[in-house]
Structures are given as structure tokens and as C-alpha cells.
Amino acid sequence: MKALNKPKIIITPGEPAGIGPELAIQLAQKEWDAQLLFIADPDLLKARAQLLNQSIKIIQWQQDQSLALHQAGTIICNPIALNGPCTAGILQIDNAQYVVDCLSQANHLILHHQFDAVVTGPVHKGVINQAGIPFTGHTEFFASATHTDEVVMLLATEGLRVALVTTHLALSQVPKAITQSKLSRIIGILHQDLQTKFGIQNPKIRVLGLNPHAGENGYLGDEEMTTIQPVIQKFQQQGFQIEGPVSADTAFGSEHHPVQVDAILAMYHDQGLPVLKYKGFGHGINITLGLPYIRTSVDHGTALDLAGKGLANPSSFEFALQQAIHMSKQSIESKLTLAKGTPQ
């Protein structure tokens, strides 16, 4: 099977004591139309596979080696050693640096060895910070590592994509954080990545208001009139298919009236994500837009209570990998089109 022109995807299983390693093993048991490289401790993967009575072949990879198209039952592994012992379900502070080292290696390989995407498993922010390593999340880590000033968090499930203007911010701080310049940057990144990474030629974006009923013409708040509407109008004048501000309580459609847009842009975390997670709980993913490469992730945590018991559901990890492969193919096609000098 030829690997030429197939997407090259990096997978980081995440916290070694969590369910990430066994989810990675479950991923490897399937056929994937891509070249996959797992960054992990191979002994960790072997031990977890044995614990779960899973048969897996692990091939250690060196940077001067080419990758083959993924074959079911095989893991090609860029080895990074754990810093301490690891027991499923029990956090070990010594291994916090290992988690960060895996992410750093993923970033290095993508930037310097022409990989297309990274799919990240769940990490435990608490134990990383307890180890004295400042860490607020994957999104911020990769933004800093690539010197990217602005990134956009987008969560997706089947039939729905929701992007956020603000992310992990106290609700009292949200109104001041939403400025015309920030909103313009977020919409620009969202629109561009929907084109280049999702292959949507003319994306349709629905922008939510900040206040109940989108402010009711200023009676329930004026941010829609002073900040959001002027930005939307600017993009509309440039030919963008953008609508809003729309009241959040009616923006997501219903079973009989599904959303007819490519993405919804919410003003803050808990405005947009409860609907998405209700619709796609266990099947949603996190996508970081604005990076120089594709990054997708599971939408769940380390599930320490399930680790090593064979109970972990791989659906979110599988969807994250599926989307990374799809987006990589779209990105490769977009670059080839631009290289030929033909319009998209």
C-alpha cells in the first residue's frame, strides 16, 4: 500500500495514567488512510496493551526514516521515555514533564518534518502545574510554541461546529474582552480555516449576540449594537456570508429545523458548548484554528477511574483522527491548487 501523498498524522496519547494510552492502542487496531506516528513511551504502550489483553506490534521510528501507510495492529512510535513508574489510574508528578515533552516533540516534527496534523489525547492540567510547569491547555501550548498571536477554539460533532470568541474566562470579564478588533480577527481566522482546512469554498457563519435576545435593540445590553453588528456589517460588505447577531436561544435550530450554516460563533464558553456537548456527548472534538498546522483533540478528560479497565470509549479519539485526516486532505488539496495558480 503506497503512502505517497497520504496525510502524515502525529498522535499524542496524553496523560500516561489515564485512558489515552489504551485509546491510542484501540485506534491502532483499525485501518486508517494516513501515515500515523505515535509519540509515546513504547514500554507504556506495551504494558497497557498487555493489561487489556490487546495484541499490538510496536515499531520504533527514527527521524531519518520514512513512514508507511498505517496497518491495523501496528504502532509506529517515536519513543520518549517516562520519567517515573506509571500505574493506570494513579497520577505521578514525575511524569508531568513527559507529557509536555511529547507535545513539544509533536510541534517540532510538524514544523520541521512536514507532518500535516497532530491529534492529542487528554492531559491532566492539575498534575502538570503541580510539577511546577505552567500549563493552561493544549490550545495555549501550541499557540505559544508556534508564536501564534491569536487562535480560535472550535468544537465539532456530527452536523454542528461551534467556535468561541472567548474561552476560559470568567463571565464577568467577557464583555470587556469582546472588542471589534478581536472579533474581526476571530471571524477572519474562522473563515479562512473553514476554507483551507475544511474545503468549504464560501463558508456560512452565524454570529451569536452576547446578551439575552441579542440585546433587544439595546434594552438588554448594547454590545450587539456597538461592537458585534458593526463587525458583521464590515464582513458582509466584503462579500462574506455572515449573519447575526442572533439570539443564542434560537440560533442552534431544532430536530425539525437543523442548523443551515457551516459554523456558529459564540461569544463565550458556556454560551455555545452546552448545546454541542448535549448533541454530541462522547462524539465531539476540539479543533484549534489559526495554527500553522492542524490540531484536533478529544473533548473528554483523562478518566482515571476507567484507565486500565477496558471500559474507555474511543469514539471521540476516532472522530478526532477522522477529522484530522479529512482536514489534512483538504489542506493538501488547497495548497496544490494555490501552487498551480488556479482559483479555488
Results as ranks from 00 to 15, higher is better:
His108Asn: 08
His70Glu: 02
Tyr98Arg: 02
Leu91Asp: 11
Ile76Phe: 07
Asn107Lys: 08
Ala117Phe: 00
Leu91Gly: 09
Gln105Glu: 14
Ile75His: 03
Trp61Thr: 10
Gln71Arg: 11
Leu52Met: 09
Ser66Val: 12
Leu52Pro: 05
Trp61Tyr: 15
Gly73Glu: 02
Gln62Lys: 15
Gln92Tyr: 02
Gly73Leu: 01
Gln105Asp: 06
Gln71Ser: 13
Leu51Glu: 15
Ile80Phe: 09
Ser55Arg: 10
Gln71His: 11
His112Asn: 15
Gln92Phe: 05
Leu67Arg: 05
Trp61Glu: 07
Gln54Ile: 15
Ala88Pro: 05
Ile110Asp: 08
Asn107Glu: 11
Leu52Asp: 13
Ala72Leu: 07
Gly73Phe: 01
Ile75Phe: 05
Ile90Trp: 00
His108Ile: 04
Leu51Asp: 13
Leu51Trp: 04
Leu111Pro: 03
Asn53Gly: 02
Trp61Cys: 06
Asn53Glu: 14
His113Asp: 10
Asn53Cys: 11
Asp64Gly: 11
His113Ala: 05
Ile110Phe: 07
Gln105Ile: 08
Ala81His: 11
Val99Asn: 01
Leu51Ala: 15
Cys102Ala: 10
Leu109Thr: 07
Ile56Gly: 01
Asn53Gln: 13
His112Thr: 15
Ala96Met: 05
Asn95Val: 05
Ile110Thr: 12
Gly73Ser: 04
His113Gly: 02
Ile80Met: 06
Gln63Glu: 15
Asn78Lys: 11
Lys57Gln: 12
Gln54Phe: 09
Gln54Asn: 09
Gln63Asp: 15
Leu109Lys: 07
Leu82Asn: 03
His112Phe: 12
Leu82Tyr: 03
Ala68Pro: 00
Gln114Asn: 13
Gln105Asn: 06
Pro79Asn: 05
Thr87Tyr: 10
Val118Met: 02
Gln65Leu: 12
Leu82Asp: 02
Ala96Gly: 09
Leu82Gly: 03
Asn95Lys: 07
Tyr98Trp: 03
Asn83Tyr: 06
Leu51Gln: 15
Asn95Ala: 04
Asn83Met: 07
Val99Asp: 03
Asn53Met: 08
Pro85Gly: 09
Ile76Gln: 12
Leu91Lys: 04
Leu82Cys: 01
Ser104Gly: 09
Gln65Trp: 12
Ile76Pro: 02
Ser104Ala: 15
His112Trp: 06
Ile58Leu: 09
Leu67Pro: 04
Gln65Thr: 10
Leu69Ala: 13
Asp64Pro: 02
Asp94Tyr: 01
His70Cys: 08
Ser104Leu: 10
Ser66Phe: 10
Ser104Val: 01
Ile59Ser: 03
Thr74Tyr: 08
Ile58Pro: 09
Gln71Ala: 10
Lys57Glu: 14
Gln92Ile: 06
Ile90Tyr: 09
Gln114Arg: 11
Asn83Gly: 14
Thr74Glu: 14
Val99Gly: 01
Ile93Tyr: 00
Ile90Arg: 07
Ile59Cys: 05
Gln97Val: 05
Pro85Ser: 04
Leu103Trp: 01
Gly84Trp: 00
Ile56Asp: 02
Ala72Met: 04
Gln63Pro: 13
Leu67Asn: 06
Leu109Gly: 11
Ala96Pro: 06
Ala106Gln: 01
Asp64Thr: 13
Lys57His: 10
Asn107Asp: 11
Val99Ser: 08
Ser55Ile: 10
Leu82Arg: 01
Gln114Gly: 07
Leu52Gly: 09
Ala106Thr: 00
Ala68Asp: 13
Ser55Tyr: 04
